[in-house]
Simulated assay, not measured.
Amino acid sequence: MSTLVRSRLDETYAALPERPAVQNERAPRQRLRKTASVAAATILLGATVFASGFVSPVMAKSLKQIPMVGSLFSSIEADLGLRAAGEQGLAAKVNAGVSYQDVKLDVTETVYDGTRAVFLLHVAAPNVKDGMFDTGKEAVKLSNAIDSIVFKVNGQEINGVNYASAGAANPNLLVFENVLPAVDQNEATLIPDNFHAEVLVKLAGIDHEFILDVPFQKTTKDIINLNPTASQSSDQGSLTVSEVNVTPVTTRLVTTIKLGKPLSEQLSHTRIAVYDDQGRQLPALNGEGTLEENSISFDGRFASTGKTKYLIVKPFVYEDDFSEKVREDQFIEGLELKIDLPPQSEQ
Score class of each variant (00 low, 15 high):
residue 4 L to M: 02
residue 4 L to E: 00
residue 12 T to Y: 11
residue 18 E to Y: 09
residue 20 P to I: 05
residue 22 V to P: 03
residue 23 Q to V: 12
residue 23 Q to A: 09
residue 31 R to D: 13
residue 32 L to F: 15
residue 33 R to F: 10
residue 43 I to P: 07
residue 50 F to S: 14
residue 51 A to V: 12
residue 53 G to D: 00
residue 53 G to P: 02
residue 56 S to A: 11
residue 58 V to K: 13
residue 63 L to Y: 02
residue 71 S to P: 04
residue 85 A to L: 03
residue 89 G to P: 04
residue 90 L to P: 02
residue 90 L to F: 03
residue 90 L to A: 01
residue 95 N to G: 04
residue 96 A to F: 09
residue 99 S to R: 07
residue 101 Q to T: 14
residue 105 L to D: 02
residue 106 D to H: 08
residue 112 Y to C: 06
residue 112 Y to W: 10
residue 115 T to R: 08
residue 125 A to K: 05
residue 125 A to W: 08
residue 126 P to S: 01
residue 130 D to Q: 07
residue 132 M to C: 03
residue 134 D to H: 03
residue 136 G to S: 06
residue 137 K to R: 11
residue 138 E to L: 04
residue 139 A to N: 07
residue 140 V to G: 04
residue 141 K to H: 10
residue 143 S to V: 10
residue 154 N to G: 09
residue 155 G to Y: 07
residue 156 Q to D: 15
residue 162 N to H: 12
residue 162 N to M: 12
residue 162 N to D: 14
residue 166 A to E: 01
residue 169 A to R: 12
residue 173 L to W: 05
residue 178 N to S: 13
residue 178 N to V: 13
residue 180 L to F: 09
residue 187 E to H: 14
residue 200 L to T: 08
residue 202 K to L: 04
residue 202 K to E: 10
residue 202 K to D: 09
residue 204 A to W: 11
residue 205 G to S: 05
residue 205 G to W: 05
residue 206 I to E: 03
residue 209 E to W: 11
residue 211 I to F: 04
residue 213 D to W: 08
residue 215 P to G: 02
residue 215 P to C: 02
residue 225 N to V: 15
residue 229 T to N: 15
residue 235 D to V: 06
residue 240 T to K: 08
residue 243 E to P: 03
residue 246 V to R: 05
residue 249 V to M: 02
residue 253 L to S: 00
residue 257 I to V: 14
residue 258 K to S: 11
residue 258 K to N: 09
residue 262 P to G: 04
residue 265 E to V: 11
residue 268 S to T: 11
residue 269 H to L: 11
residue 274 V to Q: 02
residue 283 P to L: 00
residue 286 N to E: 12
residue 288 E to T: 14
residue 292 E to Q: 13
residue 294 N to H: 14
residue 303 A to E: 06
residue 307 K to R: 11
residue 308 T to H: 08
residue 311 L to G: 00
residue 313 V to T: 03
residue 328 E to A: 14
residue 330 Q to Y: 01
residue 333 E to F: 11
residue 334 G to Q: 08
residue 336 E to M: 10
residue 346 E to A: 15
